[in-house]
Computed example of a mutant assay.
Amino acid sequence: MAKPDYPIRTERLLLRPFTPADHAALHSWQSRPDVVRYLYGGPRTHEQTAESLALKCSVTWPSEEGQHLALALQRGDEVIGETVLKWHSREHRQGEIGYILHPDHHGRGYATEASRAMLRLAFENLGLHRVTASCDARNEASWRVMERLGMRREAHFRHNEWFKGGWGDEMIYAMLEDEWPG
């Protein structure tokens, strides 16, 4: 379980731990109704964003199951989004990835690029066996990212939960360590 050297460089991005200076950037997407429409909870206040940021800053590498590593996605001098690696189980070597980008940066492949780096961390640094990702079935852009990563669709749960005033469908994707092209 080797903690990586930060920042992690991809072709166009730097992935790095969040710092308190990232509040304005984080709030720029966490406060938007169009960003949170497929996420639990609603738009965040400045205070709620500060609480979220404190939690993100507290974990720079997951040292125990249940922890979430959130990394800022930086393009040039601007933080444009975040990506997360959740460590679900030590025994079963399971985890989950996720991503959120400010809408100004959608459609350019940044989520795929950042998520590929997170899969590398999951399999090569954390030693996971299986990594999942999930999204609201209506969020086609999100499940298309999972498909571009080479993750396989394992489930389409229909009406599996009451979500924001209606029944929601959920898509589940996964990749095993021996499927990771590394």
Rank of each mutant, 00 (worst) to 15 (best):
N139D: 12
M171E: 11
H156D: 04
D136I: 10
E161T: 05
L121E: 03
A122S: 13
Y110A: 10
L121F: 02
G165E: 08
R152E: 12
A137H: 13
G109Q: 09
H156E: 04
A122Y: 02
R148W: 06
A141T: 05
L121D: 01
S134G: 02
E154S: 06
E113P: 05
G127H: 14
N125M: 02
H159E: 15
E113M: 08
W167C: 01
E113V: 07
E154D: 15
D169T: 00
M118E: 12
R158S: 05
V145H: 08
F163A: 01
F123S: 10
E154R: 05
N139T: 07
L119G: 09
R138E: 15
A155T: 02
G150V: 07
H156N: 04
L119R: 10
A141R: 15
G109P: 07
H156V: 02
M171P: 00
D136G: 07
R158N: 01
G150H: 05
K164C: 12
C135D: 10
V145C: 13
R153F: 00
F157Y: 13
W143F: 14
M146K: 04
R152V: 14
M151R: 02
W143D: 03
N125Q: 11
H159F: 01
M151A: 01
G127M: 15
E113C: 06
F157L: 15
A114G: 06
F163M: 06
A114T: 02
W167T: 00
N160V: 14
G168W: 00
R153C: 07
F157C: 08
D136R: 10
C135I: 14
G150P: 03
N139V: 08
N125C: 11
D169Y: 00
E161A: 09
E170A: 05
F123Q: 11
A111F: 13
H159M: 08
S115K: 10
L126Q: 05
H156P: 03
A117F: 06
G166F: 01
H129Y: 13
A117H: 04
H129D: 08
F157H: 11
E161G: 00
A114S: 08
A117M: 05
F163I: 07
G109N: 07
A141Q: 12
G168E: 00
R158E: 10
R153M: 06
R120Q: 15
A133D: 02
L119I: 12
R120C: 11
L128I: 06
A137D: 13
W162I: 01
A114Y: 01
D136H: 15
A141H: 09
A133P: 01
A155I: 03
R130Y: 00
G109K: 07
R120S: 14
W167P: 01
G168S: 06
A122M: 10
H129F: 11
F163H: 10
R148S: 13
R120M: 11
I172A: 07
R148P: 08
A114K: 01
G166R: 13
H129T: 02
S134T: 10
G166D: 13
K164E: 08
V131G: 07
N139F: 12
G109W: 11
A117C: 03
G150M: 06
